[in-house]
Design a protein around this nucleic acid. Sequence first.
DNA 1: TGGTCATGTGACCTGGTGGTCATATTGTAT
DNA 2: ATACAATATGACCACCAGGTCACATGACCA
Lengths: 220, 220
Amino acid sequence: MPKPTLFNLPEQKRRLILQAAIDEFAEYGFENASINRIVARSDIAKGSFYQYFENKEDIFRHLLLMLEQEKMAFFQEQHPPQKNLDPFAYFRWMIKAGLEFQSRYPRLIQAISRVLLIEGLYYSKLFADVRERTRRALQTLVNQAIEHGELDPQIDADLAIMIMETWSNAISTYLIQEGTKQADILQWIRSPQTQERIDKMLYVMEYGLRKTESQTLRNE
Amino acid sequence: MPKPTLFNLPEQKRRLILQAAIDEFAEYGFENASINRIVARSDIAKGSFYQYFENKEDIFRHLLLMLEQEKMAFFQEQHPPQKNLDPFAYFRWMIKAGLEFQSRYPRLIQAISRVLLIEGLYYSKLFADVRERTRRALQTLVNQAIEHGELDPQIDADLAIMIMETWSNAISTYLIQEGTKQADILQWIRSPQTQERIDKMLYVMEYGLRKTESQTLRNE
DNA sequence: TGGTCATGTGACCTGGTGGTCATATTGTAT
DNA sequence: ATACAATATGACCACCAGGTCACATGACCA
């Protein structure tokens, strides 16, 4: 937990420090992020940093908390277009809503995704708790799909979860990689090209790459 | 390129050094791998390391080259079960053969995959060349599938490549993560459970998660 | 035996890291 | 104006990184 001193700071200064940290984590990941650079970028003394935070993990977890709070607020003001969406449609909606969210806080999300998706694979003890929470959300979704008989019976729940997890990670990674090249991220994410690209990824997750008889039927 | 001195070394000593480097990269990735630890593990002096290699990138690229040569040799002695496999079957076969290969050099592959798949995403300039080569291999595969009319026409080539790339990466990552926990990797990879798991991932890539009419037909 | 050349060695260099702390500065209440 | 607590500061610490280099060792030949 950050020290109380952080919250006594004028908001502008606090935001400056956090922004510097976000940029640092986004650019260097967790392990290689440098507190020296963070204090230089935010124009405070090294000692001051340690008046505000315990250590590097402390500030990172604070960013994580901020993101989670923003995300909860965001998803509470959003609503699915209609009730009783089937789980696949709900997953699609969730990803799409996630896109909008991503375009609001691109840099923060880049920083955190980089650490969790990439480094988290290998320093897994540190952030295992976070990953577990997202898994549980997918679990309920998959269970619903099974109950409604919408999941291919050849596929067991664990596999389905893994596949959804893989795709939401792949989409995140794609967005972050491409998004950083764009001048206006919001506009780029909302553009029909990007939306279509995401739609197609999700389509393949649902229906697969191969041409089948039912696809031929669907297209007619 | 490593210096000539490396190749004058007795083979056992050279293998010891390379093994130490493999373990180091596997455990710490490229950026955080420490030459001090490598020389300590392989019981040579720091100065000696620089008699053999230019720097850290030099030794890593040497490992990469070794792996590529082993891989080429391996795939030349393997043959697909029958001629004229359709591209999806060929992709499945390639992945399966890759599994066998992976069980031969698990540690080396772990080291290199970690750097290329994980760190390569962010330090992309360093190893962009390697990634480009694998993409081209997938490209030809996808083009074949299109020619044979086996690809869902809703899906364009770029997307299909991206999906195959994502899945071969996901499978590699899965194998590395789970494989390191196993006592006998070869046995674990050949076990029916593991094979079935991979089969199912590839199945979903081909046919998707959702229950469709044609699946119902296939199961009967 | 002495000379020469490839190889081995570890102390040492610069520059970076995360973290500490005595001291200076500032804000506030009396 | 004074006193006192909260905050700001940057020199400093121990440690580790990659890389260098003067010197030691050893193999081979005259």
